[in-house]
Design a protein around this nucleic acid. Structure first.
Lengths: 331, 331
DNA sequence: TCGCCGTGAGAGAGCGCTCCCCGACCCGCA
DNA sequence: TGCGGGTCGGGGAGCGCTCTCTCACGGCGA
């Protein structure tokens, strides 16, 4: 009726609890004979170790929390990058025998709860996706003593190990491409400026444009499609002779394409458009989008690896991955 | 140094372990005086109950597994519907105090491990997303005795409680719309036929078309964008006078739009296109896509609720939600 | 032959919590 | 004042596992 315990297996196999434990945990100091006996009993009884009992004594859970600290709008979890991150991190962590506990913390209450969850010892480590500057969660988690790796350089909570990619280099690549192809008035549509990613991309845009002796022209978006369209309309109103736009992500670039079409401007004839992220949809726009590939899967995988190392007492070296420009037809 | 235990709190507050336990678990038979004493000690010590110890004795984990049984290609977890499901289910489950353990089981080995994970008692229940016919996971999970709810009617493993929406009604709505708007040769692009959703939508298409005295014309896709484009090309080759297409999901409809454009057909002028799912991208195609809204968030929420009921010993009534047609410009 | 060492099995003490059961205390009533 | 009933706190036995410590045994060298 009830589930077999280690003791039941021991009785069945005619050996001690200790021996069963040793076999189940793969220790080497067991004679093959006894090992076989135990394995047979395990099979017959369908024994599976009770995880609660095990982690009570080992103080390990073999679980890793993937916490997505999301503003109420659900910005991050709506982003196409999100499922890439989840997928890559899951794959890596599960290959290492860790269970992934997904936590979408989209309210302060949920963040509070996530913090308590981690502090209570439910998980061995945390892979944190938190992009907004004022987010209290990174600091909160750092205080728990549980290993934490941030996916993306955190705004505050410096000192938290993180994995990121080279936003500055990537954005510079795109902007320089626009300038090199002969565009005179190169504008940008930024992401929300409390995100380090958005700030880095904007700074790189500014530097690159100024280096070329041009004046920066910026409209602020929030990484959503609609905000991209809105920002593009503003740009067209304020700077009618704009002939190139670097949008800080593809979603906003897609919005910009739409706004340009509505305004009767042709892409890339009248206005060149470059995006950032290389999401799948960038392939299917009209025209296909020139964009910066942000290696989300590799970044998530690197984050997972860094975390796994930390959990095993390894070092906390931040990782920064390179980016590359994908040239298509929009610029 | 080490984390405070319930016993430490009891000592601090000058009461017994039992009283602390009662306070922490919100039992009513505690005098306000003692309750305050305990809460003060809890606060001072920063006490958090050890979940392993607790679930060892209660046999509850307060965790729910969200298992996405995905073919190797990552079809489901690539689908825009995926994050909607994750988000809605998470929200509902977390509001009920359950932690969501996400499991992307995209290989047989991973499925095996997921089954063992559940059988070992890591979670109190499972919300299963498994769409492919031959998937052994539903049956495996059913055998564990842990409550399972399937998101979408499972192909095999009848008897598994599920939550779905009315594919038949939804598809009929779309096809009838095409016919009623005067289209003569209405084709369909199907999903993979080992998925009940794809089969239901195809059957509804057939019935509706035949009812109108027409001949069904079908090309087989696999719910991906590229397969939609490919299927559309086949349809154009085999039936050049096709003037309407019902794609079994929006992704394939988007692929079809692309193939139609490449072939020089105008939408909706030459060919009307209808999709299914109402993903966000359907708003941004050119022209915007007429589609059937499949209420993924509501479905996921209903699934979570059904599961929560089951965990508490409630009934296992399947739930089927209604669908509606969203008419835009493509048909 | 004796003793020492190494290898491998067994016994049992917890890990931190819940919950049953008992006992104490307080109140009201006679 | 004594007694009964009800309420509430405390003691302690486990939940199932790991891991240390002890012990038995066999082999080998002197």
């Amino acid at each position: 009726m009830k589930r077999p315990t280690l003791e039941a297996v021991a009785a069945r196999a005619g050996v001690s609890k200790s021996s069963v434990s040793r076999v189940v945990n793969g220790q080497s100091t067991v004679t093959p004979e006894i090992r076989e006996l135990v394995l047979a009993a395990v099979r017959e009884l369908g024994y599976l170790p009770n995880p609660a009992a095990r982690s009570l004594v080992t103080r390990r859970t073999d679980a890793i929390a993937l916490i997505v600290s999301d503003p109420p709008g659900g910005l991050v979890s709506d982003d196409p990058m999100f499922s890439a991150v989840v997928r890559a991190a899951s794959r890596t962590l599960e290959a290492a025998g860790k269970q992934v506990v997904l936590t979408l913390a989209s309210s302060d209450e949920a963040r509070e709860r996530a913090g308590r969850y981690v502090a209570a010892g439910h998980v061995d480590g945390v892979l944190l996706v938190s992009m907004h500057g004022a987010d209290p969660l990174p600091a909160m988690l750092a205080r728990t003593g549980v290993p934490v790796v941030s996916h993306g350089r955190p705004a505050l909570a410096a000192g938290l190990p993180y994995v990121d990619h080279d936003h500055t280099g990537g954005a510079a690549l795109a902007v320089r491409h626009l300038i090199d192809s002969g565009r005179r008035r190169v504008a940008t549509i930024t992401g929300p400026l409390d995100m380090t990613a958005a700030r880095d991309r904007l700074a790189a845009y500014r530097d690159t444009v100024r280096e070329a002796g041009r004046r920066p022209i910026a409209a602020i978006g929030d990484f959503t499609r609609v905000s991209g369209a809105q920002a593009m309309r503003e740009l067209l109103a304020d700077e009618p002779d704009v002939d190139a736009v670097f949008a800080a992500n593809d979603l906003m670039a897609i919005g910009a394409l739409r706004a340009l079409r509505e305004a009767g401007r042709r892409v890339p004839g009248d206005v060149a458009v470059a995006g950032y992220d290389d999401i799948e949809a960038a392939l299917y726009t009209d025209p296909p989008l020139t964009t910066v590939r942000s290696p989300m899967d590799e970044q998530a995988e690197a984050g997972a690896r860094l975390l796994l190392g930390l959990v095993d007492g390894g070092p906390a070296e931040p990782v920064v991955l390179p980016t590359s420009l994908i040239v298509r037809e929009s610029a």
